[in-house]
């Protein structure tokens, strides 16, 4: 196949994936709005019967986890799996497949890894988010968070195809390197993990506010979300897991920079913000492990860390000029 036809295959797949994700969003939204209450009431009462989550920041006791959330940390109680939800989930996997082909063929079109500009970056990073979600879902049962994954992914893809789009082209020489490949792969996977963690932290706020009111929720959706304590713990475990990977991504970037520019660290805006993100998440781990901050305080730090990550991936490319500017737009 020619470069041209790979490129157009890529575009078609991305549009198809967006279409499928829209269906996913509708399915999940329907599931929440109309079916949630029926399925959810049960687990709510179970939660209440074991005392629920007593206070913000309380230590996670296993008694609560084992009753309310049978499968590990998540709350994907089989009794709240609905037909529409199942369809949504299957479509999600289909959409992921389509997007993966889209990203892959984009790479083949340009005969290089598909992250040479902001457009490619967006489609690849959002692919990573979906992939990480689907993987974690297998281990932790995170169906309840599907809608919070599909909406930002759709937004990112929408932005990518409308504002950020550039035709497939080659990379400027500085961006052609083995270490760059390693660096960006690690950064992309980290991005997916940080994003899931940030979604969990956001839901933590909603859930803990809801737990404080003690009233049943209108849609029953929140009943299907794990307890605030479990969310808090999951958010932490995701950060603890991704932090070494992010550290690796930063160091791989430094090795690449050394090869490309003769210095491994030059406080270029992109490097600076990667460092800031790293330090904030190190602070998050410290706050949790050494000072014992849990719940609200640590969720705030996690979200601040995530904002700096997002700023690095988006804001820095647009507003702060530097060696890394590769948005591909002029």
């Amino acid at each position: 196949m020619s470069s041209q036809s790979w490129a157009s295959l890529s575009n078609q797949c991305i549009y198809a994936a967006m279409f499928v994700y829209t269906l996913v969003m509708i399915a999940f939204a329907y599931d929440l709005a109309f079916i949630g209450r029926r399925g959810g009431t049960k687990s709510r009462s179970e939660l209440v019967s074991v005392g629920g989550h007593s206070a913000v920041g309380a230590h996670q006791t296993s008694g609560e986890l084992s009753v309310a959330i049978p499968a590990g940390v998540g709350a994907d109680d089989p009794s709240v799996r609905t037909r529409v939800g199942n369809i949504g989930h299957s479509l999600f996997i289909l959409g992921f497949g389509l997007q993966a082909i889209g990203v892959l063929s984009r790479g083949l079109a340009a005969s290089r890894a598909p992250w040479g500009n902001m457009y490619e970056f967006s489609i690849t990073a959002s692919l990573s988010v979906v992939g990480i979600y689907l993987l974690l879902n297998r281990k932790f049962g995170l169906r309840w968070m599907g809608i919070f994954v599909v909406i930002p992914v759709l937004l990112a893809l929408g932005l990518a195809v409308t504002v950020l789009y550039v035709d497939a082209g080659q990379l400027v020489p500085a961006l052609r390197s083995f270490w760059l490949l390693i660096h960006v792969s690690a950064a992309m996977i980290s991005f997916g993990l940080f994003t899931t963690s940030a979604i969990v932290s956001t839901l933590y706020f909603i859930k803990s506010a809801y737990e404080k009111t003690g009233k049943p929720s209108r849609t029953g959706f929140l009943d299907r979300v794990p307890s605030a304590g479990a969310l808090d713990n999951l958010g932490y475990r995701l950060v603890a897991f991704v932090f070494p990977l992010w550290t690796f991504a930063v160091i791989a970037g430094a090795i690449w920079a050394e090869n490309a520019w003769g210095r491994y660290w030059g406080w270029d805006p992109k490097e600076t913000w990667a460092f800031i993100t790293w330090v904030i998440y190190a602070g998050y781990l410290h706050a949790r492990v050494t000072v014992g901050w849990k719940g609200r305080k640590s969720a705030i730090i996690a979200l601040v860390g995530y904002s700096s990550l997002i700023f690095n991936f988006i804001g820095v490319n647009i507003w702060l000029p530097g060696l890394h500017s590769y948005s591909g737009l002029s």
């Binding site: 406080w267 805006p269 600076t272 800031i276 330090v279 602070g283 410290h286 706050a287 702060l320 530097g322």
Partner: peptide
């Protein structure tokens, strides 16, 4: 204090990305 210093370090790094730097 270690925690405070960590956050200070993050904060202190920001202006260098907003203002042009002589070293760069």
């Amino acid at each position: 204090v270690a925690l405070i210093l960590l956050f200070l370090l993050a904060l202190a790094s920001i202006p260098g990305s907003l203002f042009p730097q002589r070293g760069i």
